[in-house]
Simulated assay, not measured.
Amino acid sequence: MPVSSIITAVGLGIGLSACCGFRVFIPLLVAALGAYFHWIPVNAGMDWLGTLTAITCFGTAAVLEIAAYYIAFIDNLLDTIAAPLAIIAGTVIAASVLPVGELDPMLKWGLGILAGGATAGTIQVGSGLLRLLSTKATAGAGNSVIATGENLAAVIGAAGSLILPVFVALVLLTLCIYLGFRLLMKTGKGKI
């Protein structure tokens, strides 16, 4: 496999995984559509991602998830559920598209956790803290603005990952590094 294809696949995996931190099911839906229409390659054993059943399930879940984030205080509850789900979804997407071929499954899933799960988890924690601050400052009235921004970030980021995977991955990784640095600095000062 050429190096450019490997870099593109890694960018795709990281980009889609990072978008799981904004919304869990939108990137899964985009990945399912990409696999169904053969826009993206998926690893052996992950062919289920490109089925009509997967598209239907992820589409339904995405619509419900988007709607639920517009209900004040329910959105904060969803963040507690979405954090582990984002890590799992990010890991699955990354493991589906990372070019590991016939390598050891431990390596495939390890790379999926490192590249996908960690990125999705970092963004989810950052957006969850932002929503928590918004709830505290505006009694939940400002959360719909944050939800709209997250929805747009998930849709644009996931779709952009199919078109410009390396660019989107770099932008989202920069965001993850920034959020991680900010969390470490605040934790070190005892502000969280």
Rank of each mutant, 00 (worst) to 15 (best):
S5V: 12
A31F: 00
R131S: 00
L77H: 00
V166L: 13
E150Y: 04
P165W: 09
L33A: 11
I66C: 03
P27L: 06
G190E: 08
G59D: 06
G190N: 01
P105G: 03
D104R: 01
W109Y: 08
C19Q: 05
P105A: 09
V168R: 11
I14W: 11
P2N: 12
T8D: 07
V125P: 04
A32Q: 04
L111Q: 06
L107P: 13
V30S: 07
A62E: 12
G128P: 05
P165A: 07
H38V: 06
A61P: 01
G50N: 06
V42F: 04
I87N: 02
A147Q: 02
K136G: 03
N151G: 15
F25H: 07
I156R: 02
I55G: 10
G116S: 05
G121F: 09
T60E: 02
G45F: 05
G157W: 14
I177W: 09
Y178M: 10
I146V: 13
T80I: 11
L52C: 06
I55M: 13
L175D: 07
L77G: 13
L77F: 15
A67D: 07
M1F: 10
W109A: 07
I40G: 00
T187C: 13
A72H: 05
F181K: 12
S4I: 03
I146W: 01
I163P: 04
A86L: 05
L12F: 08
A94S: 10
C19P: 03
V10K: 01
A94H: 07
C20V: 11
A9R: 10
Y69G: 01
D104C: 11
V100F: 09
A118S: 13
T80W: 06
P99C: 04
W39H: 03
G45Q: 04
L49Y: 01
L184R: 08
I93N: 06
C176I: 05
D47E: 14
I40E: 03
W109P: 11
N76M: 00
L33Q: 00
L183H: 15
L29N: 09
P27W: 07
S144E: 13
K186T: 10
S161V: 08
D47P: 02
L103A: 15
G90W: 03
A95C: 02
A35C: 05
I163A: 15
L33P: 07
V125K: 01
E102I: 12
T91Y: 04
P84I: 06
G21E: 02
L78I: 08
A147D: 07
V10S: 03
I156Q: 02
T174P: 04
I71A: 12
L52G: 12
L179A: 11
Y178N: 12
P41K: 14
L132V: 00
L133I: 05
M46D: 09
A95M: 08
N151S: 13
L179M: 09
V171S: 07
G21V: 05
A86S: 14
S17E: 08
G59H: 03
I163Q: 09
L129Y: 10
A158M: 07
N76L: 00
A68D: 00
G34P: 06
V100Q: 10
P41C: 13
F22T: 04
L52R: 03
Y70W: 11
A44Y: 13
V97D: 00
C57V: 15
V3Q: 11
L129R: 09
M1R: 09
L129K: 08
